[in-house]
């Protein structure tokens, strides 16, 4: 099945998901359009990663409908996982394993050059640092020349300098025409780099729009900005009415 609109990469209609008998979200509708830079935000346990995996069709859909554009190619950067040290595989072999049949080794070399993977190409993946790991996963995700790059908290564990560099690189990819859909805990990044912020809270999308419009959204302010401020400066009780 195809999306009814060519500019839409993914369209989710009335999706529901239950986990351990509890509803994580219900009747959710989202459309991911070509060329957007989208940040998906939400508190811990809001279901951001689950939603992303459902949108990418990694998780089986329990209810509703998710439609991908027929020619959609997805690049996915998952959260860092604990690579099994018993499986000895170098960064280069890991990338080769993910190389499509139609792609040449010259292309692989070019991607590795762009993402500076050569210095650790022969290092086992379980020994890579946070920054190296991120470059490797990004290179892997870009091997199939994706229309959509989906990232799940990609800057987790990176220092501020590395985070800044990473965001610059993402912007470069976005300028090349790749649609970005990223789960982020970093509100500052979401507000300053994104064209669209989707906020997930209590099983529904509580805010969805351009960063500027969110600044005037009372629900967004109450759930995210005040919660953030309360965490840093508890005495302000910015979000005290939340617990009433």
């Amino acid at each position: 099945m195809q999306t009814d609109h060519y500019h839409s990469l993914i369209e989710a209609r009335q999706i529901e998901h239950r986990f351990n008998g509890q509803s994580l979200f219900s009747a959710l509708n989202i459309r991911i359009d070509v060329g957007q830079y989208i940040s998906l935000i939400g508190l811990n346990g809001a279901g951001k990663s689950t939603l992303l995996r459902l949108l990418l069709k990694i998780l089986p859909l329990q209810s509703g409908e998710i439609v991908h554009r027929s020619d959609l190619r997805i690049g996915y950067v998952p959260q860092r996982w604990h690579a099994n040290s018993q499986l000895p595989i170098s960064a280069l072999d890991f990338l080769k394993l993910n190389l499509g049949k139609s792609q040449s080794h010259a292309f692989l070399n070019q991607v590795m050059e762009t993402w500076q993977c050569h210095p650790f190409a022969h290092q086992p993946i379980h020994t890579l640092s946070g920054g190296q790991w991120q470059r490797l996963l990004l290179a892997r995700a870009l091997l199939n020349q994706p229309h959509l790059l989906a990232l799940d908290e990609p800057t987790q564990g990176l220092d501020l300098q590395s985070q800044h560099e990473f965001y610059q690189q993402l912007q470069g990819l976005h300028r090349q025409g790749i649609t970005i859909l990223m789960i982020s805990h970093d509100l500052a990044h979401a507000m300053s780099y994104s064209q669209r912020v989707i906020a997930l809270s209590e099983g529904r999308i509580c805010c969805d729009g351009a960063p500027q419009t969110l600044l005037n959204n009372i629900e967004y302010q109450r759930r995210f900005v005040c919660a953030h401020q309360d965490a840093i400066l508890p005495h302000t009780h910015c979000g005290h009415h939340d617990h009433a």
Binding site: R53, L56, I58, I74, Y76, I89, L97, N98, R140
Partner: peptide, 17 residues
Amino acid sequence: WRALLLNSLNSELASLS
């Protein structure tokens, strides 16, 4: 081989492949 190895490395990435 490829499917077994990708699945051993990360099942989510294997699924997208």
